[in-house]
Write a protein that binds this DNA or RNA. Structure first.
Ligand code: SF4
Ligand code: SF4
Lengths: 133, 133
DNA sequence: CTAATTTGGACTAATATAGTCCTATTTGAA
DNA sequence: TTCAAATAGGACTATATTAGTCCAAATTAG
């Protein structure tokens, strides 16, 4: 399936939301409530984005999140990478050789699949979050 | 995950194989053996391609498959469509409204996701099987 | 101290993909 | 006219991925 995961969609919505409430800290609860995103799942996503230095966080009462980068500095490709792991159109295309296709020896389409991989990558590398806000 | 399914990979390999054994009928068993593709699964795929008029089939002893179209007439997009169903980068992007995203009301990224959908579609619509043989 | 909030591990549920099993039908040839 | 090679196709199981939940800890303003 050629699919953007819910995690990425939720991240995009959250980033849009945060980018639009200028400077004020935004809580996971606020985003979850207004965007109807499952709270626990959203929390994980925001934590991840914080660990990846996309967001800044403040703990405790009156805490919340704020952007740590301009939206045009955040690439969709990287966002997908952070949240869903390696982007690979086929098993043999993982950068980290964690997966290994058993057909690699007899495979007659690998080089063409690699081309496709490049094109898909480029598509997502040429989009930033600013395209979504 | 942004992924070409095994079904589609198997179909590509099979079509390449058939296109390269000119005019002689090719059996599912031959392809399965030389390409190490699970026989039953491959059979289903070839049957599907036959029903979609990509292949011609002859039953019985000495039977097998042959191409019914030029490789440059078979679009990757359609192949994926036949084997895996609708291509949709998000739940709300299915042509047939079989799926329905519960967030559609509060969603703030739908139009941008639609743009992405278009771009992904175009990428696959601009590739034919001849790019793989 | 307490309530609001982030942090984060572990788990479960739902869905999609991949693969298997079995039986029927067709057909050329011994 | 029987047999074996092949396609046809339904029903099922297994595996992997994605989505979502639960719980407990740490932080901090008031
Ligand atoms: S080796 Fe061939 S079959 Fe295996 S994942 Fe790569 S392209 Fe697909
Ligand atoms: S969240 Fe928005 S973009 Fe994603 S599927 Fe639902 S409506 Fe479409």
């Amino acid at each position: 399936m050629i699919r953007i995961s819910k995690k990425v969609e939720y991240a995009l919505m959250a980033l849009k939301f945060i980018s639009q409430s200028d400077n004020k800290l935004v809580t996971a609860r606020e985003i979850s409530d207004t965007k109807k995103i499952p709270y626990d799942l959203l929390s994980k996503i925001l934590q991840k984005l914080k660990n990846e230095n996309i967001l800044l966080s403040n703990q405790g009462t009156n805490g919340g999140y704020s952007l740590n980068k301009r939206t045009d500095e955040i690439y969709l490709y990287n966002l997908m990478n952070m949240l869903d792991g390696d982007i690979a159109v086929a098993e043999c295309m993982y950068e980290t050789k964690e997966k290994d296709c058993s057909l690699e020896d007899s495979c007659s389409i690998k080089s063409e699949v690699a081309k496709l991989q490049k094109e898909v990558e480029d598509l997502f590398k040429n989009k930033t979050i600013s395209d979504f806000v």
